[in-house]
């Protein structure tokens, strides 16, 4: 089946089985391996991508559901989003498997003008498991990125 979507700002059209996981289509057909597979069962959030601006776990989404949608993967952020920089400076990544998902899941909080509380940051990232950091450095990175993004 032919599927069309916008991937990181570029229109894409590909021929594939409609029930293939969006995760596999992104990694194998589109060559974008920044999106990670942690569990493959919707528990860990490592495979998070944004579909029409909303975080979804791409391991549970058949590619047919992405038809006509705007997709953003970690590659689409280009490396200079304030959260990508603060994840470096705060050492928010250790093994890095959770990192692309964490960045995409927290992006909306960082971009919104309202300063998030720590409780709000925890809630927004509750679906993204990280085994390495204990989350503290990730929280610091999100708050620092928000401050940088909205500095007057």
């Amino acid at each position: 089946m032919r599927t069309r979507f916008t991937l990181n700002g570029e229109p894409r059209e590909l021929e594939t089985h409609p029930m293939r996981r969006l995760l596999d289509v992104l990694r194998e057909d589109c060559g974008l391996t920044g999106t990670k597979e942690g569990c493959g069962e919707g528990e860990c959030g490592a495979c998070t991508v944004l579909v029409d601006g909303e975080p979804v776990v791409s391991c549970l989404v058949p590619v047919a559901q992405a038809e006509g949608c705007e997709l953003l993967t970690i590659e689409g952020l280009g490396g200079d989003h304030p959260l990508q920089r603060s994840m470096m400076t705060e050492v928010g990544a250790q093994c890095g498997i959770c990192t692309p998902g964490v960045v995409l899941a927290a992006k909306a909080l960082v971009d919104a003008p309202r300063k998030p509380t720590l409780a709000r940051v925890r809630e927004a990232l509750a679906g993204n498991l990280c085994r390495c950091t204990g989350y503290e450095a990730i929280h610091r990175a999100v708050l620092a990125a928000h401050a940088e993004r909205h500095a007057k």
């Binding site: 569990c39 528990e43 990232l125």
Partner: peptide, 17 residues
Amino acid sequence: AQLTNYVIPTTLDTPPM
């Protein structure tokens, strides 16, 4: 040995340190 039945701490289970 799956994250569905082996539960590890999330952001909400981890206290301020």
